[in-house]
Amino acid sequence: GLRKNEAMSLTFNDYDGKRVNIWRQLKRSSHSEFTVLKSPTSKRTVALDKATIELLNEQLDKYKDMPGFSADWFLFGGYKPLSLTSIDRVKKEAIEKSGLPYIRIHDFRHSHASYLIDKGVNMYKISKRLGHSSITITMDRYGHLLDRQEDEILDAIENG
Rank of each mutant, 00 (worst) to 15 (best):
L55W: 03
V36Q: 13
W23S: 00
I105Q: 04
H132L: 12
W23F: 06
G1A: 03
S32N: 09
Q59C: 12
G17F: 15
K27E: 15
Y115T: 02
A94P: 11
I157H: 01
D65S: 07
G1I: 12
L10Y: 09
L2Y: 08
N13R: 14
S30W: 00
L60M: 12
K4Y: 00
D147C: 05
R24D: 03
V121I: 15
K119Q: 14
A7Y: 06
T85G: 13
G17N: 04
H106Q: 11
W23M: 10
L26I: 11
N21Q: 10
T45D: 15
N57Q: 13
G131F: 15
S111T: 01
T35W: 08
L84R: 08
K50D: 11
D49E: 05
R44Y: 05
R89I: 00
T45C: 13
Q25R: 11
R89K: 15
H132C: 08
L48H: 10
N13V: 05
K38L: 08
F74I: 09
S133C: 11
F12D: 01
K50P: 03
L130I: 05
E158S: 03
D155W: 03
P40S: 02
I117C: 11
F34H: 03
N159V: 07
G68V: 04
S86I: 02
K80D: 03
Y124E: 08
F12A: 07
I22C: 02
S70K: 09
N21K: 13
Q149H: 11
W73A: 01
L116I: 02
L100V: 02
I117R: 15
T35Y: 12
E152L: 09
Q149E: 05
L75W: 05
S30D: 10
I157F: 07
N122S: 01
S32C: 13
E93L: 14
E93P: 07
L82Y: 06
S127P: 07
